[in-house]
Design a protein around this nucleic acid. Structure first.
Length: 847
DNA sequence: GCAAGGTC
């Protein structure tokens, strides 16, 4: 029997589609990568009896990146990133998606692609085809590979898609390839150049990265634009007339609203101020409505959560994602605001009736179900709706807020519009008309469910009738000033991004998070986005050099070009080449004119020479270097004008003024907290490894200097108990009476001999297991030995009297990246005597 | 250490 492989974009969709097509008669098993599952059932495909196999990917299979050589910030001029080679890598190596797909494709004859119906989905189609091309013959043939087109996960839609299969669209896929390549080249080139340029000059930038991106930069641009509008705002005076009646008493506002010329206002006032009574010229009662909301999409959810709960879009989406996985709500990333055609409102409302919070409301709605407003079907996913009932007690506070919102919004969409009456009363005094409006609720409609939108009645219930003459109590003239706009709220920003097509429902929260993490904006009260000095000088700098770089239209211009590829009306290579050329020119112009941006930085930030505190001595000039604590941590020598990077994310201390024997730099001690890694390092060697077998960014515990008392050979105890390449090295940098040995490659740490006053290696004296033996000294009153003796020698791993004083664990919050060493040769050090090797030992039974 | 886009 032939087999048909079918692939969806995510596991949950594969399960739903399999359920529909397999009629509930499918078997399910976990895939080899532990993330995707496979459903199988027997059926008919193109008139033949076949076995269907339905599975999924998890989004993109591949992502693009530079080849290894071009990932080096030190050795590559960023301008090369516009022309250097690019390769595709597995997007998430842990998922082993290619080998999983290959394995499942084995023995299959056909491939049916159920990826989401957008450009990205089309691109993933080709990633899947590529992954299984070795297993399914003629994969690019139209008789082998098919594409399902569906807009909703309903029985009807899915069966229809299966009956009308088409083919994947290579043009659309190519347009995504082009977008990926452009974003990568442009983003990385600008980011690397800016970061290195400004970090090399200023010491208090407060961001480890000065990034540029075609989405994040215009996003920041919106925030700075508003800031500038506020700064440049000039208040203007204006004047208003108002009128008060007596018997009945009521306040009327001027129909002209306001005038900006004082003399005109006074003239008008003088004309009417002596009038004592006037006629009600109009009194009209109208019934007005406030519309119920449309079905909920991602952007609306993020805006509501930001305004209502002060939750960031990022957090909101994390919560929504969790609620989705737990089955409480439908897929939370969608642009669609129209319910599927056959959506079963009754059944959802009935479920919500089980939740005490909505019982009454759901009951009322069930009795009088209103049809939802029409919305927009973007063909991605259905709107966000509740899927099952959850009790308040089964959620944490924020999760409940989001779930509650989804439920109440859902109920709101099928409630009635809010209805109120509005009475408009006008009174004419000579040339001037004054207006009073008062509103009164008739039917709360959807606001019963969405109670935070509850209607506020106007206080005045005063009734007038047309033609009635009323007594005028007072006519007042008041002076006011126009006020500046307020900072953008996060909700405003989301609206702007959506309007200008910057980011997608899934990436909008990421961009906002980025500009805030990188310290370009801070989030103020009411989740208002206030640009920082850094954010402001960046945007103003682009505006001085090349305003297009920060314009919201830039993204859409690029999209236009990409759409030509998608529509098949322009050649992929030509468009890409054209766009890359334009941006390369822009980049080069930017580099040439960076002094225009730098002038702004110069005014706001302090040069490296004025930053940081004097710390440890430079080996070249013997003067004190400064320690720049702001990320990225560095030492800066003012005299030599050199910067030495340090490990991030921990503490750096001076270390007893000890010096590196190779370069005379004073050693410093790095520590990542009491449970983290710690080791001494030479600032020069850390940046410029002295030996071929010492990697960059390594400490003295990886240094193969033959005689230095702080290096590997003097302090190495044995090979690591866990990893194959590491060495356990004694750490003498810690606070008095604290001792550790730590692996110089992996995260293994062994706390030893708490409170000992001294721990030293017995040079050359090896235990049978191969480890260096040590001598441990306690002050008498602090002895931890069972016999209370002050000093003992032996092996940390084998000596019975040491066993209770040795405790192994893994470093917490340890920085990643290897300090791998091989016990290899010393560069250019022929003839140096005393080169030793680190003892090897068998895996110890104690651990 | 960089982008933006999928998804976990």
């Amino acid at each position: 029997m032939k087999s048909v492989l079918m692939v969806a974009e995510k596991p949950s969709l594969a399960a739903s589609i399999a359920n529909i097509l397999g009629g509930g008669k499918c078997s399910q098993r976990k895939g080899s990568n532990n993330s995707c599952s496979v459903s199988e059932w027997k059926g008919t495909f193109q008139g033949e009896s076949v076995m269907f196999k339905m599975t999924s990917v998890c989004g993109h299979v591949m992502s693009c990146n530079f080849t290894v050589k071009y990932n080096s910030w030190d050795q590559i001029d960023p301008v090369e990133l516009f022309s250097c080679p690019i390769q595709k890598q597995e997007a998430n190596p842990k998922l082993r998606m290619n080998s999983f797909l290959e394995r499942e494709a084995k023995g299959c004859t056909y491939l049916v692609l159920w990826l989401d119906c957008d450009k990205e989905g089309e691109n993933i189609c080709f990633e899947v085809m590529n992954a299984v091309s070795k297993m399914i013959p003629n994969i690019y043939s139209k008789k082998v590979t098919y594409r399902a087109h569906f807009s909703a996960i309903s029985d009807k839609d899915i069966h229809k898609a299966m009956a009308t299969l088409g083919h994947p669209d290579e043009n659309q896929s190519k347009s995504v390839d082009a977008r990926q390549e452009l974003d990568l080249r442009i983003g990385c080139a600008f980011t690397r150049f800016q970061t290195r340029f400004f970090q090399g000059k200023y010491g208090d930038l407060d961001s480890s990265l000065i990034s540029y991106g075609p989405c994040q930069t215009p996003t920041l641009g919106f925030c700075v634009k508003r800031h500038d509008d506020i700064q440049t705002f000039k208040p203007e005076s204006f004047w208003c007339l108002s009128l008060q009646t007596a018997n009945p008493s009521a306040n009327f506002e001027w129909k002209r609203k306001r005038v900006f010329k004082k003399d005109i206002a006074i003239l008008l006032l003088n004309q009417i101020k002596k009038v004592k009574e006037a006629k009600i010229s109009k009194c009209v009662t109208k019934t007005e409505f406030r519309k119920r909301p449309q079905a909920l999409n991602t952007v609306e959810l993020m805006k509501a959560a930001s305004v209502g709960f002060s939750l960031s879009p990022h957090t909101t989406m994390q919560i929504a994602e969790r609620l989705y996985i737990q089955g409480y709500i439908s897929y939370p990333r969608t642009e669609t605001t129209a319910y599927p055609q056959h959506y079963d409102f009754q059944s959802t409302v009935r479920q919500l009736k089980d939740i005490p919070d909505y019982h009454t409301e759901a009951d009322n709605i069930l009795k009088n179900l209103n049809s939802p407003r029409s919305g927009k079907d973007c063909g991605d996913h259905p709107p966000i709706t509740p899927l099952k009932a959850g009790q308040r007690s089964s959620f944490d506070t924020d999760s409940w807020k989001i779930y509650d919102y989804v439920c109440r919004h859902f109920l709101g969409t099928i409630s009635k519009d809010l209805k109120y009456s509005e009475v408009t009363t006008e009174i004419v005094v000579e040339t001037e008309t004054f207006v009073n409006t008062s509103k009164c609720l008739i039917d709360p409609g959807f606001t019963s469910a969405m109670n935070w939108l509850a209607f506020k009645n106007d206080e005045t219930g005063t009734k007038f009738s047309e033609g009635q003459t009323v007594e005028i109590n007072d006519i007042k003239l008041s002076e006011h000033q126009t006020s500046p706009p307020d900072y953008l709220t996060e909700s405003d920003l989301i609206s702007l991004m959506e309007k200008h097509g910057i980011g997608t429902d899934a990436s909008i929260p990421v961009h906002i998070n980025n500009i805030s993490q990188r310290n370009y904006v801070t989030i103020g009260g009411g989740r208002k986005l206030m640009p920082t000095a850094l954010g402001i000088v960046l945007v103003h700098g682009y505006q001085k050099i090349d305003p297009e770089l920060v314009l919201p239209t830039m993204r859409s211009e690029v999209e236009k070009m990409l759409n030509l590829i998608a529509a098949g009306s322009a050649d992929f290579k030509n468009v890409l080449k054209h766009a890359v050329t334009i941006f390369k020119l822009k980049f080069q112009y930017f580099v040439q004119n960076i002094q225009n941006m730098d002038a702004l930085f110069d005014a706001k930030f302090s040069p490296l020479s004025e930053s940081g505190k004097s710390f440890s001595r430079c080996g070249k000039c013997r003067r004190y270097m400064k320690y720049i604590q702001t990320k990225p941590a560095r030492l800066y020598c003012n005299h030599c004008d050199e910067t030495y990077s340090l490990p991030n994310g921990g503490n750096i201390r001076t270390y007893k003024e000890l010096k590196c024997p190779l370069d005379e730099f004073e050693l410093v001690a790095f520590s990542n907290g009491s449970k983290g890694k710690s080791y001494p390092l030479c600032p020069y060697c850390y940046n410029h490894p002295p030996f071929t077998d010492m990697q960059k960014n390594a400490g003295c515990n990886s240094c193969t200097h033959p005689t230095c008392p702080n290096a590997l050979y003097a302090l190495g105890i044995s090979s690591c108990t866990d990893c194959t390449s590491g060495v356990l090295v004694l750490d003498k940098t810690l606070t008095p009476n604290t001792w550790k040995i730590g692996c110089n490659s992996c995260d293994v740490i062994i706390n030893i001999f708490k409170d000992a006053s001294k721990v030293s290696l017995n040079s050359g004296n090896l235990c049978e297991c191969g480890a260096q033996t040590v001598t441990v000294t306690y002050k008498q009153e602090k002895s931890r030995f069972k016999d209370n003796s002050e000093e003992k020698s032996g092996c940390i791993f084998c000596c019975e009297e040491f066993k209770h004083l040795v405790e192994k664990h893994r470093a917490v919050g340890a920085p990643h990246g290897g300090n791998n060493i091989n016990n290899g040769g010393v560069r250019g050090k022929n003839g140096i005597k005393g080169k030793r090797s680190i003892p090897k030992r068998g895996k110890n039974k104690n651990f």
